[in-house]
Design a binder for these strands. Structure first.
Length: 857
RNA sequence: GGGCGCUUAGCUCAGCUGGCUAGAGCACUUCGUUUACACCGAAGGGGUCGGGGGUUCGAGUCCCUCAGCGCCCACCA
């Protein structure tokens, strides 16, 4: 078979993936025998195409999976997709808007079904794209976050918490979008700087002794004020504490209270409190047992709790009229331009209204406590470890979790309320029913759904069929959770808390936090700026392996780095190098070669190469165990390119050892397979040295014995070749020079090889040499160069002498330091002495050589 | 305001618990069609490791400090 000169990935990749899939190579091996390794993929959003970040993610998950599979472990990489609750619904709503419809045209059930179909249609790409990335995940275990087992798990967890008193229903301030009609978690609110004004309002004291001036950016909320707060140690207001004010525009009398949260230096130092529409005010109201007046309704208009004049007005409208009325009454002290940050809905940009709403909450204290303990005990290893510390800090300040969302696309909350008693809530899983009858009482289902993160927090064990599943007993806790830093708090923290709560164990043993793939200039990729890099055209042009290696090259955990097309090209070239190494090998060994079980080193080059492979097997394994992908890749790159191709393969052109060459190629293909699965498998299949064998399921290479001394002698060959190349390049006399040596079995033996590698005319033994003496090697060798030409080399010699002088000086300085010889390890001191000796010897040689030149005149 | 991180060659970055004369890729210079590969081969140039101070026999690595950059969280009446 004649292989083309250039490796063309797209000719092979899809066939190779199909071969793996057909061979069931992705399924875990026999259960529980030689250890297990498991990763459950964080489920990407099912309604979107995979972006370049997922190409990185796929690589970071697939590399260790392939490595551990080759180590003989029962290995599982489980794929999934996320319904992405609110995300998907808003994408679908945009689509509806294009058709001139809105979600309010449909019932909750109709909407759910429509979004289901919409997401299902878009999910087609998902499998195709992960296959193109070479992800060796077990598709038979694919899980969607709305699969029955995930929903059931969420219900069981909710029930357990309900029974154990961790779930409560409470009226709390939520971040409410009046357009979408749903509340958001704190982390989902997007803050924007808004240029507005800050107004000062005069509230007259009821006893007529004056006014207290408060500052506000939201004057309309004054209709819901229930107190004014000042700092307890603020001398200006000390006498007013405990008095009341007459709230303008209303007939209400509200107290002046003292609370430490007030910043004396901000505004007037006096704050109006609107507990129903501001988190700080709410907290203060809790402390002081103040009433709460809901002034703004869920539709964004003023409620019936405000004077009738303002009822039903939209917030912006109400603001104008309130300001106008205040001014007329002389209660408006001042207004000044003011820029401050305001929470907005991250989808539609509507200003978020903090609003009182009945929600389901989880009491997080007991859960957080367990998680903090596990993290402090180091039961989960983090890459990098600093993320573990961050998570502990976060958990220590954790608030209760609002798990209700007022949208259709999600898992319905399995709770029903008695139509005759709004306090009477019951747990029931029959969420397909609107109303249920129990003991003659009628209950109506809660219309809310779970926050997506609530169900996905059970992902590590729900996907493995906790508690009865075989997968659960084999693969839990997971070996690794690989994810991005942005979901450390919303997801990773909750998986740990729920994992501990539900299963009693940490959900995973290690966490790898990846950094982001930024745009080439280091800025964030964004569709609107248009600097987004699509991974699939890159695969088309450079190959999936090149994309994978190009992305991990030089990347460390949790560090954001720009996309670099040159690294992709470089990796593509590397694949091509492997391809050509295989072509060469096949040419040498012939098409009929079959796998040899007993390769034996014969030459120095064999011993040297086997030592290199030995070292690389150990080093690559170590790197991969510690998820140091970039370093492993870089090491293998140099093993292949520098050691194997440039030295060993060149050596085989003089002295071929079929068994060793074949062994080395096999070992290299195996070591690189996790990084470049397609090209290595393509080569493996093309060579076909073993029948019906797949590289993906082959075993990690084992080292062969090699003679250390002989391997070191090959280094001497490299030294001589290196010096000859340097000199012949400097003097431009390549291909025309003969190397002479005196009485040396080593050169006798290695002469042909040195001649070939150094591009010499000949290598010959002589009685006494003449010409340019080699100074880098212990062996006595001369290059047969005429005096006139050789003289041009004297300046190089002078430079080398100067360098040797510097070496000797710095070593002398170190060795004459008594503290150094006394305190540094003896090994180091001996090493320094040895180095000094070598430097002095070398200098002598150089000086002698230079003198010869000068004598020769 | 709290937390985390970064600053090493022209560019993008490695450098793990302090120990040879600080590395890689790309870019650059010179040379080269040699039995796989020009997506190649050979040789080479290029760094006061952000500034200052300290600990140490020894600091890119540890500590303090200053400067610049970035991220996350909280707050913004």
């Amino acid at each position: 078979m004649n292989l083309p000169k250039v490796y063309e990935p797209k000719l092979y990749e899809s066939d190779i993936y199909a071969l793996w899939e057909k061979s069931q190579a992705f399924a875990p091996k026999s259960r529980g025998k030689s250890g297990h390794y498991s990763i459950v993929m964080p489920p990407p959003n099912a309604n979107a195409n995979l972006h370049i970040g997922f190409a990185l993610t796929a690589a970071l998950e697939d590399i260790p999976t392939r490595y551990h599979r080759m180590q003989g472990k029962s290995t599982l990489l489980l794929p999934g997709a996320d319904h992405a609750g609110f995300e998907s619904q808003s994408v679908y709503e945009k689509q509806l808007a294009k058709e001139g419809k809105s979600r309010f045209d449909f019932s909750r059930e109709e909407l759910y079904q429509q979004i289901w179909d919409f997401v299902a249609a878009n999910r087609q790409n998902y499998g195709k794209q992960f296959r193109a990335l070479g992800t060796s995940c077990d598709w038979s275990r694919f899980t969607f976050t709305l699969d029955e087992k995930i929903i059931n798990r969420a219900y069981k967890t909710f029930k357990k918490m309900w029974d154990e008193g961790l779930i409560y229903r409470g009226e709390r301030l939520v971040n409410y979008c009046t357009f979408h009609g749903t509340g958001f978690a704190d982390v989902e609110v997007e803050y924007k700087e808004v240029a507005s004004k800050i107004w000062s309002l005069n509230y007259p004291l009821t006893d007529g002794s004056g006014v207290i001036t408060v500052a506000t950016t939201r004057p309309e909320t004054m209709l819901g004020d229930t107190a004014v707060a000042v700092h307890p140690e603020d001398a200006r207001y000390k006498d007013m504490i405990g008095k009341t004010v007459q709230l303008p525009l209303t007939k209400r009398e509200i107290p002046i209270i003292a609370d430490g949260f007030v910043d004396k230096d901000f505004g007037t130092g006096a704050v109006k409190l609107t507990p129903a529409h501001d988190q700080n005010d709410y907290d203060a109201a809790q402390r002081h047992d103040l009433p709460m007046i809901v002034a703004i309704g869920h539709d964004g208009t003023m409620t019936s709790h405000v004077p009738s004049k303002y009822q039903g007005l939209p917030v912006a409208e109400a603001r104008k009229i309130v300001l106008n009325d205040l001014e007329e009454q002389g209660a408006l002290a001042s207004d000044e331009p003011y820029t401050h940050s305001v929470g907005h809905c991250y989808k539609c940009g509507t200003a978020i209204e903090p609003m009182l709403k009945e929600q389901w909450f989880i009491n997080m204290q007991p859960l957080a406590k367990q998680a903090i303990k596990a993290l402090k005990e180091g039961r989960i290893k983090f890459y990098p470890d600093s993320k573990r510390e961050q998570l502990i800090t976060y958990l220590e300040g954790l608030r209760d979790w609002n798990i209700s969302r007022q949208i259709a696309w999600g898992i319905p909350i399995p709770a029903f309320v008695n139509v005759d008693d709004s306090e009477d809530w019951i747990f029931d899983e029959r969420t397909d029913q609107h109303t249920i009858e129990i003991d003659g009482k009628t209950y109506v289902r809660d219309s809310d759904v779970f926050d997506t993160w609530f169900s996905s927090s059970s992902w590590p064990y729900a996907t493995l069929d906790y508690p009865e599943g075989e997968d659960f007993s084999d693969f839990y806790p997971l070996s690794l959770m690989e994810t991005g830093g942005e979901i450390l708090y919303p997801w990773v923290s909750r998986m740990i808390m729920l994992g501990l709560y539900v299963t009693g164990e940490v959900p995973f043993k290690e966490v790898y936090i990846h950094g982001y793939v930024m745009a080439e200039d280091g800025s964030k990729m964004s569709k609107s700026i248009g600097n987004v890099v699509d991974p699939f055209p890159i695969i088309e042009e450079f190959g999936s392996d090149a994309l994978r290696m190009g992305l991990i090259a030089g990347r460390s955990p949790a560090v954001n780095r720009g996309f670099d097309n040159r690294k992709i090209e470089d990796a593509r070239n590397f694949c091509n190098k492997l391809w050509n190494i295989a072509r060469f090998t096949q040419e040498k060994l012939g098409n009929e070669y079959s796998h040899s079980n007993n390769p034996k080193a014969a030459s120095l080059a064999d011993e040297w190469m086997l030592r290199k492979i030995q070292h690389s097997i150990a080093l690559t394994s170590d790197y991969l165990e510690e998820y140091r992908f970039s370093e492993a890749y870089e090491h293998l790159y140099h093993l292949v390119w520098d050691d194997f191709a440039d030295w060993y393969i060149e050596s085989t052109k003089i002295d071929l050892n079929e068994g060793v060459l074949a062994y080395c190629l096999e070992a290299i293909l195996k070591l690189i397979h996790p990084f470049a699965p397609f090209v290595t498998e393509t080569i493996w299949q093309t060579l076909a040295w073993e029948q019906d064998s797949l590289l993906i399921t082959s075993s990690w290479p084992t080292a062969l014995k090699a003679d250390k001394k002989k391997a070191q002698q090959f280094e001497e060959v490299k030294t001589i070749v290196g010096e000859v190349r340097y000199i012949t390049t400097a003097l431009r006399v390549r291909d025309t020079v003969t190397l002479y040596y005196k009485e040396s079995a080593f050169l006798e033996e290695q002469g042909d090889l040195i001649k070939k590698l150094a591009r010499l005319k000949d290598v010959r033994s002589v009685e006494d040499g003449n010409g340019l003496y080699l100074t880098e090697t212990k062996h006595s060798c001369w290059l047969d160069i005429d005096k006139a030409t050789a003289k041009r080399y004297s300046s190089e010699l002078a430079d080398k002498i100067a360098a040797a002088d510097e070496d000797i000086q710095s070593l002398d300085k170190r060795l004459s330091n008594k503290s150094y010889t006394a305190k540094a390890p003896k090994k180091l001191v001996d090493e320094s002495k040895q180095q000094r000796k070598e430097a002095v010897d070398k200098r002598e040689k150089l000086v002698a050589e230079l003198e010869r030149f000068q004598l020769a005149g």
